[in-house]
Amino acid sequence: MLSFIGRSIIQKTVTLFFVSVVSFLIIHLAPGEPSQVDPLNPKFTPEIVERFRKEFHLDKPMYVQYVYFYRDLFTGKTVSWKDNQSVLAKIWERFLNSLPLFIVGTVITWTLSFPVGIRAAVGRSGLYDRSTTFLSYLLISIPGFFFAYMLIIVVVTRFHVPVIGMETFGLGDAPWLHLIMDRVWHLLLPSVLGATGGIAILSRYVRSQMLEVEGQDYVRTARAKGVPEEQVHYKHALRNALLPFVTMFGLILPGLIGGSVIIESIFSWPGMGRMAYEAILARDYPIILTVNFISAVLVLAGTFISDLLYLVVDPRIRL
């Protein structure tokens, strides 16, 4: 166990190092430079550009830039090229905005997928199963922003509530219940949209996992000895079918920093995805690289946690 942990930590650190190198190369080898973003701006005189390049080490060789960048990142001194603010502080601020979306979306995904998937598996090839199957394909196939616009039109014209942004501007001293409902309405649509794909995929996975277990011998044995159908499904089959999902808790970790660019731009939600998108537009390399680095850390940490959970939960696997 300990040797497994040690080995995988070393392996993941090495992977992380290469991720940092590759992302640095992708950003810096691409044509164009941040100093060229706005050539028509009269403030961008050659002297200023030269000073800019010097300030951010752009005139040094690539490997020096790499060392400088990651030294700054680990000491927390990286600053955005656009406004000279600390990158980590900016990310933290946006992260707090994205967090409610992530939490509500994840809760919706996990609470809806299981009942839907289990019911589909229990009544397999019935009407419910077939219609949820079709519905989940539909949800995977619909372009996110198209779906978003349809939902916005429905909600705005039927319920007459504003949904764009994080809260309605200028509500000042409205009663607190009103304020809370306003926040809830604003939160609801983007999180539901963020959850649709997840619900579709996860419920299909729950269904196939459940069917797999229902075909096992011990389920047949349980049925043969006269255990009521309810108990067979929920006590014998479900418990074993849930095993792989425990490990999936690790895999939701990367979603923390992902934040959908498209959904956040539609709803003018000042979250992580939007920030990354704006950073790409402005060629704000420190932000792009930092977001990328953190998300790589989360992906690796997520797989590590899910491996560990598997070890803990499933006694059959001892690596």
Binding site: T15, L16, V19, S23, I26, I27, A30, P31, G32, P254, I257, G258, V261, A276, Y277, I280, L281, R283, I288, V291, N292, S295, A296, V299, L300
Partner: peptide, 16 residues
Amino acid sequence: LCFPSFFLILTVVALL
């Protein structure tokens, strides 16, 4: 696999 795929595509497409 460590790169968030849509973000990576967006970055590269925006830079090219």
